[in-house]
Amino acid sequence: MQDINTKKKGLRLSDTIILLIILGVLVAFFTLINSDFIAYNNISTMLKNMVLTGILALGLTPLMIARGLDISFGSSISLISVVIALLYTVGGVNLWLALIIGVLVGVFVGFINGLLIESFDLIPIILTLGMMAILQALALVLANTFSNTYSILVMTDPLYYFATRTFFKIPYPVLVLIVLVIVYWFILAKTKVGRTIYLIGANPTVAKLSGIKVKKIKILLYTFMGLVTGIGGIIIVAVSGVGMSYHGKNLALPTLSAVLLGGISLMGGSGTVAGTMLGVLIVTVIFNGLSVLNVPSYYIQLFQGLALIIIVAAYEIRNNRAAMN
């Protein structure tokens, strides 16, 4: 299909091939060391792990294409999971209502992030860093005050079924991811909204002078990032069966790495849903592979940092080279 967007916004074909080769090599490597790696059980664990990173990376994709950034989603997920758990267990609220309120918390946080960043021209990473601290503290305080513990059990049939059962052999959380992937792909590649987002990222001044309400749209994108964070919160509660104030702690780096690996640049204007998902796949394989190999957790953190730097450095070096020619 000759899509007008594929010309530059997506990964270049060569990039995609390189990423696929990396993926293949990684899978082969981990399988060689431990044949359990491609066992059905591990694959299904991997898919479930991938869901959360995938959903968050999807939310970041349009946001970062439009030159925004949010790193508070980890703490936000912690808070959301705690809110849902507390409402359901301590508050005795109907499960569905609790879930909706949880999602609304995420939406609200995203909206506030966007509102502050866009109305005061703040540097997104700094504001969301501050937000991260506040949300983390809120999660801790709420959990402590109302249940005296960091993790609150949420035992309900619907959530348990959602986490464990399948729909035509596809686990429900994976199904959610698939639906979101299709929605985001459709919006970015096919619609007027998508075009507007790319235009904002390519040059916000030009976008504004084309009569586009740049600030409004960006606030909306932050709000949608909040929405997918809320969905992520529900999934983490369902899969783990607890609401915990440290749930989202190690999500920021892998998600950011995945997005950047998938060809999104901090300068905005480029990136596709397909690229992002490829990035998510690779990052998931790496970290799942490491845990299958029983690598201690501090190594994982170390690798997360290394991965981020290597990914960005690789793109940066290539860009420098391209600029020289």
Partner: peptide, 14 residues
Amino acid sequence: KEEGVATEMTVGEN
């Protein structure tokens, strides 16, 4: 270059 065209996009998109 800064206000008129988005240089990283296509002629049609501009």
